[in-house]
């Protein structure tokens, strides 16, 4: 496995991503919406000294939760399946590169532009907030962007799993959109329903919430963004009291890392085995 080959492949993938209409559409809409949300936010509050950013952070988190998983899942899901459908995957693999290099190159080549798009949206919104006099703790702002990168990485991995199992890109997109719905709405809905129906306690609800990478991102963002973890209710207070603020953030980051590494490994193993059978 050569780093140089991975970088060349990643570069090729990135250039293709930048030409991808989905990608451009998502980047532009994410940036526009981020700027809009933060520009209707109130400026520094004279009485409380709270900046506008703190209170609108929730809307920004919501925006990230809707956009980032969607773009990561969809671009991930068409990464391999698209090339397989076009026949370019065979062509690519006929070059003197290993499957590992192709896989890693593709992952990097898609992840990097997604992360830069997130950075673009946050940056534009941040300029807006700063010009209107909101102080918005700069470090927290950057940390939220970094958390969004982690969210993108984990869902891109999941997208790759979809991709290696799909022969056609259209089918892969369908599965990706369903997964998006599952992760963003249906999964949480299921946990809430279970919690009410089975009268689950604090620990169980916390454990179940940890299953969902999007929910993990949200909890981490709230903890990073504001000192008010009690906004998360008894479960949040329980978690912070039991593990400490840093402890909880560590757990949440670990969950996101697991959600990145395991699907990535699964996708890669499947990719290498599958190709061998085909040829």
């Amino acid at each position: 496995m050569e780093i140089r080959n991975i970088l060349i492949l990643a570069g090729k993938e990135t250039r293709e991503s930048l030409k991808n209409r989905w990608f451009v559409l998502y980047t532009v809409s994410f940036s526009v919406l981020a700027v809009l949300i933060l520009s209707i936010a109130p400026g520094r509050n004279e009485i409380t000294g709270i900046s506008g950013y703190g209170r609108t952070a929730a809307s920004l988190i919501n925006l990230v939760l809707l956009f980032v998983p969607l773009i990561a899942l969809i671009t991930g899901s068409i990464s391999i399946s698209g090339e397989r459908e076009n026949g370019t995957l065979q062509y690519l693999l006929s070059h003197p590169v290993t499957k590992a290099e192709v896989f890693a190159g593709k992952f990097l080549g898609i992840l990097v532009p997604i992360c830069f798009s997130i950075s673009l949206g946050f940056g534009l919104a941040g300029i807006g907030v700063a010009l209107r006099g909101g102080s918005g703790d700069a470090a927290e702002f950057v940390l939220t962007a970094l958390l969004s990168w982690l969210l993108a990485a984990s869902l891109l991995s999941v997208g790759f799993v979809v991709s290696v199992f799909s022969r056609r890109a259209s089918k892969a997109i369908g599965v990706a959109v369903f997964l998006w719905l599952l992760i963003i709405v249906l999964g949480d809905l299921g946990i809430m329903g279970t919690a009410v129906a089975m009268d689950l306690g604090i620990k169980q609800v916390f454990a179940l919430a940890l299953l969902n990478p999007a929910e993990v991102f949200k909890i981490a963002s709230v903890l990073v963004l504001s000192p008010r973890f009690e906004i998360l209710g008894p479960v949040g207070v329980y978690a912070v009291r039991t593990f400490g603020r840093e402890g909880v953030i560590f757990i949440l980051l670990s969950v996101m890392a697991v959600w990145t590494v395991i699907p990535f490994a699964c996708a890669f193993l499947t990719f290498s085995i599958w190709r061998r059978e085909e040829s």
Binding site: I191, L232, G233, P234, G236
Partner: peptide, 8 residues
């Protein structure tokens, strides 16, 4: 307990 899903 379900308040943990606030903002989601």
């Amino acid at each position: 307990e379900l308040r943990i899903f606030v903002f989601s």
